[in-house]
Amino acid sequence: MDLVPGDPPVPITVWRTARSGGDQHATVSARLAYRLVAAYSRPGDTVVDLTDAHVLDSACLRGGRGHHPAWFTTASALVVGRRTPERPAGHDDGGDDGPHDVRDWFGDDLTDPGPLPDDAPSVCPGDGGDPQGRTSLVVATWPLDAADGAANRARLGRLLAACTRLLRPGGCLVLVVGVPAGAVATPEDFTPVVDAAAGSGLGYLQHIVAVAADTDGDRFTYHATDEELLSLARATGADEFLLHLRVHADLLVFTRRGGERRG
Rank of each mutant, 00 (worst) to 15 (best):
D2V: 13
L3W: 03
V4R: 14
V4A: 11
G6L: 01
D7F: 14
P8M: 08
W15P: 00
A18H: 02
R19F: 00
S20Q: 06
S20Y: 03
A26Y: 02
A26R: 07
A30V: 04
R31N: 09
R31M: 06
L36A: 12
G44A: 01
V47C: 05
D52Q: 10
A53I: 02
S58N: 13
L61G: 01
R65Q: 11
G66I: 01
H67F: 09
H68D: 12
A70Y: 04
T73E: 10
T73W: 10
T74F: 11
S76R: 06
L78V: 08
V79Y: 13
V80Y: 06
R82K: 07
R83H: 07
R83S: 07
R87D: 01
D92A: 04
D92W: 01
D97I: 05
D97N: 04
G98L: 13
V102C: 15
D104E: 15
F106E: 02
P113Y: 14
G114R: 13
G114S: 14
A120H: 06
S122N: 06
V123W: 13
T135H: 09
T135M: 09
L137V: 15
D145A: 14
A146E: 12
D148E: 09
A154I: 00
L159S: 00
L159R: 02
L160F: 01
L160A: 04
A161Y: 10
T164E: 14
L175S: 03
V176W: 11
V177T: 14
V179L: 08
G182Q: 13
A185Q: 06
E188M: 08
F190R: 09
P192F: 05
P192Y: 02
V194F: 09
A197H: 10
A198I: 00
Y204D: 13
Y204H: 15
A210T: 06
A210D: 09
V211M: 05
D214I: 03
D214C: 03
D216Y: 12
G217S: 02
D226R: 10
L229E: 14
A235Q: 09
G237S: 07
G237Y: 05
E240P: 01
L242Q: 11
R246S: 11
V247T: 12
H248Y: 07
A249R: 15
L251W: 15
L251C: 15
L251R: 15
G258R: 04
G259R: 05
R262K: 05
G263I: 14
